[in-house]
Amino acid sequence: MLARLRWTEFGRDPGAAIARARLISTLGPLIALLLASIFFSIRTDRFLTTENLSLITQQVAVVGVLAIGQTLIILTAGVDLSCGAVMAFGTIVMTKLAVTHGVNPFLAIALGIGVCLGFGVLNGLLVTVLRLPPFIVTLGTLNIAFALTHITSNEETIANLPDPVVFFGNTFRFAGTTITYGSVLAVALTLITWFVLTKTVGGRHVYATGNNPDAARLAGVRTRRVLLAVYATAGLLYGIAALVLVGRTGVGDPQAGQSANLDSITAVVVGGTSLFGGRGSVLGTLVGTLIVGIFRNGLQLLGVAAIYQFLITGVLVILAVAVDQLSRRRQA
């Protein structure tokens, strides 16, 4: 009986603080999303129109897909700076092959996604085999992909794309709103990733590896294999994002995606996933993507100059990281 009392007595205090921190990181993004929506609905007439909501879903789809891959990597306490550049290279490969070289469009798509997967595998091998820090590795592959994009495209935008390549830009009507297949794909991929991360053995190993790699390894988790799988999957997702991007813009643009790495990191962090690894949710990332998208869109509607959108995004990301950091410090 005495032993029982003692066990509970010790556990109480840190538990409450951590439960509170966890609640903030889960509910915080949703509340922010709600408040931002309410604010912009009141301040502008056009925010809450079906046309505008449709526009937002189209605008966020590309970053939404990228951010899924970014979430996987950040959950392992890594970060991927190369995602936007890799995606841009993927768009050039698929459009250039399909248009300039007359390759079968489906094969061109597969090869475009394939090079992105290849970059993901390269990132993963450099992180796991050479044990280089993800920040440096992806900074390197960012520049490599950027250079390859401009070399292969000759700085030219590739237009006149065949139908299959731009399929995800097609729309359908739902509840009076126009929705692209790209947006549906982004949501579907988020849900699939959520399922894998929360319900499967591999997904739980991603969290364990990110949270405490030593403990995971000693418990029999093949942590290097987990990391490699995460980087490869992220690469695959960047390839899919490339396809969504081509569908949305209708062209292969070598200038595309240059701020997409920071946009995706912002979405992940604003969505409540910890940069220290092992905590967070890809559903939060979807919310984070929407928050960033709604801020951009709403400020635009309010007539705020574009440069202030960067300012607001910067404030958002620092705020999100600060909340994460403070909640961690409290439990230490």
């Binding site: 949270n211 405490n212 403990a215 995971a216 418990a219 988790v221 092992g278």
Partner: peptide, 16 residues
């Protein structure tokens, strides 16, 4: 270094 702090008790018991 035995446990993953963010995972719950059941997950830690069956980790790996």
């Amino acid at each position: 270094l035995a446990l993953a702090p963010a995972l719950d008790i059941a997950e830690n018991l069956f980790l790996g």
